[in-house]
Simulated scan of single mutants.
Amino acid sequence: MLLATVLVDAEVSEYGQALDYNPCIDCKLCVTACPVGAIAKDGAFDGLACTTHNYREFMSGFTDWAQTVAGSADAADYRSRVPAAESASMWQSLSSPPGYKSGYCLAVCPAGEDVLGPYLEDRKEFLKTVLRPLQDKRETLYVLPGSRAQEYARRRFPHKPLKEVTGGWAPPE
């Protein structure tokens, strides 16, 4: 989830009131979809795993990438160490606001008026068309070396290549 603050100098309508219920239907699709295991079955959240993977192009990932560029002997060496898709992604984030790699938890969440109906009507079809493509997608997962996220991704998504990154962070002891 990307959090931000918005300051408004206007009167807020009745639609701006806090929810009086929890929209989560406890389906655990967010847990199943997360490629780095940042959301546990009990609802615990590993913010470092999420940040490491999703915000790769923010300062910590940029630092790793810059060190790779500086440590490369020449262009061929750099290309052997960094896939073209990662170079393109980093360049895109440098030329526009950075994006994040995986909003899968949000993409699969049926807790909304427009998606709850289709989920409840045909869960198998929802899983096939919404969840499975994300799980099957071949994509690089960014993890801290020795982290729970690294172990989870290796075990749960062996078809997805892992890239160890640090950016000055270390997994909790």
Rank of each mutant, 00 (worst) to 15 (best):
S80I: 07
G103P: 00
D20V: 12
L116W: 02
R81K: 15
G71S: 14
L7C: 06
T166Q: 15
N54A: 10
R132I: 00
P35Q: 07
E14P: 02
A170H: 09
R56K: 04
T68D: 03
Y152M: 09
E173A: 12
A18C: 01
T63G: 01
V115D: 07
G168M: 12
P118A: 08
V69E: 07
H159K: 14
E151W: 07
L94D: 02
F45K: 10
S89A: 12
H53N: 15
L94M: 11
A4M: 06
W65T: 14
T166E: 15
T63C: 00
W65N: 13
D42F: 00
E173Y: 04
P161D: 14
Y152E: 06
Y142P: 02
L120Q: 08
D114T: 08
P172N: 11
E139L: 03
S93V: 04
P98M: 01
L144V: 02
L120N: 05
C27I: 11
F62L: 14
T32N: 06
K124T: 01
P161V: 14
A4K: 11
V36R: 05
T52L: 00
K124V: 00
A73H: 11
L7A: 09
S13L: 07
G167V: 04
T32S: 04
T63I: 15
V12Y: 06
C27T: 11
V143R: 02
W91Y: 12
T166N: 14
S89D: 01
A75K: 15
T52W: 01
L141T: 09
Q67V: 14
P83A: 12
D46F: 03
S87G: 09
L134G: 09
A44C: 06
R79S: 15
I39E: 03
P161A: 13
P98F: 00
K41S: 13
Q92D: 10
Q92C: 04
D20N: 13
V6E: 11
K28R: 14
